[in-house]
Write a protein that binds this DNA or RNA. Structure first.
Lengths: 230, 230
DNA sequence: GGTTATAATATTGTCAGACCAATTTTATAT
DNA sequence: ATATAAAATTGGTCTGACAATATTATAACC
């Protein structure tokens, strides 16, 4: 365990974070000004600025030029930026990510059923109808499909889980997976969507997960077939 | 969608990230110096410094005072810091996190079996033996248990998944869940560990997942019983 | 020649002051 | 009371300086 002497900037960052915690500041709240921070912390404006800009880049503060600083409300954004860079630099194994997505979606189904949650079947069905209709019109199928799955995960009623899935999906959207399936494949997907809804209504975990597994199968085949590893 | 005018610092951050990507720099590689960056990008040292310190805080660069800058190797650290702050400020629903952990571990089991992976049973058994031995000695059971589960997830052979789980577990370790179970409960856990190993060897997904579900049951009960929601 | 101690250099850390740009607040006029 | 203009506040960028630390070059020694 290496504990190198912390720089002033690090100390100031910690103190600012502590201040936010201690005062229970909420997203959107107005924060102190640079001047107030320099006086309160007894450091130069340079140090304060390097600290607050770092805090902005990790999604803790929002800086409005001329208008002060505020507690940021999008905690997800900072993480997304990190993942995005990591993806662009080191590449990303699409298969690994796809496996994670599958795990999360299967997990959502399990949560819903094990916690005996009554899903909003109407809403899910409506989203799937949109998906169906999109097959015959000029629609971005990727988006309507994502909407359905997003709602599915939301039904699990676990905010942290939902946020995690959101990040993964955004990360996933960076990869250029081309899912231009034929009409038949898309219709099959729509049917699978509907079957999943019904399985959830019937609290039938096995059927729900099996159907979801089937739903994922084509894209896994696509990946394996062309030997895409990154 | 608000796209505010990017500050110079943001631009410089992007250009630095792009430089890292384009040159395919790897963790540990020596990066440019502040001086080189100011000359190459034609901005003041102030801007460069605010940019690189931000990049350090998100875990992309490592700055060694007096010794230059390097490509960071701990991609997880930046995310962990964000989550830690989020936890300290907004609290965290233990139950939600626990559900995520369960989902991930069940997912690991599925990955191992569906991908027909032969787990390193010896290694897992050895870790579990350590767990067993720890019951009767002065050992931090939390750590030895974590070691076992960590290895389990590693066996799934999905690096992105492993990293994700690591983050969740570190986040999880922030909560003070006290699992001081009695000797009988710990012995049962050890037995469950062993049963999971055997189920993996036999490629029996249902048994593996059922056992894991049982393994999680006590802690879920502990949470529900005392009505802990945060 | 190789090793070690020392000095010189390079690099990051912090500070101070200045000026610009954007925003907010205050004063003024209608 | 409202609209406009002026002033003050606040963040954005630049320059120059010096300190602290790490690296490199040099000198001395065996």
């Amino acid at each position: 365990m290496k504990l190198q002497k912390s720089s002033l900037v690090d100390i100031v960052m910690d103190r600012i974070k502590a201040y936010i915690s201690e005062n229970k500041m909420q997203p959107g709240d107005k924060f102190l000004t640079e001047k107030e921070l320099t006086e309160k912390l007894n450091v130069s404006r340079t140090v304060v600025r390097e600290a607050i800009i770092s805090l902005q880049s990790v999604g803790i503060l929002t800086i409005k030029p001329g208008g002060g600083m505020y507690i940021a409300n999008a905690q997800v954004e900072g993480i997304r930026n990190i993942l995005t860079h990591h993806f662009e630099t080191y590449g990303l194994k699409v298969k690994e990510l796809l496996e994670i997505r599958k795990i999360l979606e299967l997990g959502a189904l399990r949560l819903i059923i094990e916690n005996n949650i009554d899903v909003d079947a109407d809403r899910l069905t409506k989203l799937n109808k949109k998906y169906e209709a999109g097959i015959y019109t000029d629609t971005d199928m990727k988006t309507v499909d994502a909407d359905f799955h997003r709602q599915l995960i939301k039904e699990a009623n676990n905010e942290a889980f939902f946020n995690l899935s959101t990040i993964i999906n955004q990360y996933f959207s960076l990869t250029n997976i081309d899912l231009t399936t034929d009409e038949q494949g898309l219709l099959a997907s729509a049917k699978e969507h509907q079957n999943i809804i019904e399985a959830l209504i019937n609290k039938d975990l096995v059927t729900a997960q099996d159907t979801m597994t089937t739903h994922f199968k084509p894209i896994f085949m696509w990946i394996n077939q062309e030997g895409r590893n990154d």
